[in-house]
């Protein structure tokens, strides 16, 4: 089993190197445009262009350029933005990562717990009013756009009802550092967590319910019934356990995408300076070094999340272990 996990991690690094090459090629090796002028940004003077060309080695072969770029991102970390002169890109991205991770991990914990509860309860009470109610709530959750929900949340907790006993604890928007102010960190993030999680709770609850109902038709569930086990035990130990396998797949994809920048709207609404916000700002200025670094970071996270999913698979499903 350990071997299977190690092999999967090795594969992950292999894929990451591949992605870094691909991203590099897309940004700098596409023909027809001078990469130096792209990096330098709009209206750059000829001297700056020349400096860029030198420092990125654009007068040298591709692989040298690639290695220089990788060195700048991963080893020396001195890749600088040319829009905001002298602004170091790598520390800027590193600064935003804790913000996004805090937001997404917290929301993920919420949505996994509530998704499983809702899906399981709905499947167990299939056809009843409770099942129907939960599924309708889930559908509403999926249908509410996150920016709208976020604004409503802000309206309610920050202005309209802020002075009532219910929401007086809600701190002003913005991010508090976890290590220096853990309580503030927690309080500021509660509302964003709920906002981001609601969509996924609805989605995961509905998907899990469908999976569970399918699993309850399986032969092995019939065997479990024939063994004289209780319905609760059959649902939780037999059906849920096997249904979680596809649940985890979905989770890996969503989690990776969110950490990689898809949480942008939530970050903007709650004024959290995360990776999404950084990418968004860089795109506005066509700040190529920043865009490239965040794209690379985002794809790394998707790969990492998928590798983690596969490791969880190995733990969940014995059939995967022996392959």
């Amino acid at each position: 089993m350990l071997l299977a996990i190690l092999r999967r991690v090795g594969q992950m690094f292999f894929v990451m190197v591949g992605i870094s090459m691909l991203v590099f090629m897309i940004f700098f090796a596409t023909p027809g445009a001078d990469p130096a002028s792209r990096i330098a940004g709009r209206n750059a003077s000829p001297e700056i262009l020349e400096a860029v060309r030198k420092s990125f080695g654009f007068d040298q072969p591709f692989y040298v350029q690639y290695l220089i770029m990788m060195k700048k991102i991963f080893i020396t970390g001195d890749l600088t933005s040319f829009v905001n002169r002298g602004w170091k890109v790598v520390p800027a991205v590193l600064d935003t990562i804790p913000v996004t991770l805090s937001l997404v991990i917290g929301a993920a914990i919420l949505w996994v717990i509530f998704g499983i509860i809702i899906g399981t309860v709905a499947a167990a009470t299939r056809g009843s009013w409770l099942d129907k109610l939960l599924m309708i709530l889930g559908l509403i959750g999926i249908s509410m756009p996150v920016y709208w929900l976020g604004e409503v949340m802000n309206l309610v907790t920050q202005s309209r009802y802020h002075d009532t006993w219910m929401f007086s604890w809600v701190p002003p928007l913005g991010y508090k550092n976890l290590s220096s102010d853990p309580k503030g960190w927690f309080l500021t993030l509660i509302i964003p967590w709920i906002t981001l999680a609601i969509l996924y709770i609805g989605l995961y609850g509905r998907v899990l319910r469908a999976n569970l109902i399918e699993a309850m038709q399986e032969d092995y569930v019939r065997t479990a019934r024939a063994k004289g086990l209780s319905e609760t035990r059959i649902l939780l130990r037999h059906a849920l356990r096997t249904s979680l396998i596809s649940f985890v797949t979905l989770f890996g994809l969503d989690f990776g995408a969110l950490v990689g920048g898809s949480a942008l709207l939530t970050e903007v609404v709650f004024d959290l300076h995360g990776v999404g916000k950084l990418t968004y700002d860089a795109l506005q200025n066509l700040d190529l070094p920043v865009i490239m670094t965040t794209v690379m970071y985002a794809s790394f996270f998707v790969v990492l999340a998928n590798a983690l999913v596969d490791v969880v698979y190995i733990l969940l499903d014995p059939r995967v272990r022996s392959v």
Binding site: L3, A4, R7, Q11, S322, V323
Partner: peptide, 9 residues
């Protein structure tokens, strides 16, 4: 037929 992949155990 070949089964499994180069990367498998």
């Amino acid at each position: 037929f070949t089964v499994g992949s180069r990367f498998s155990a």
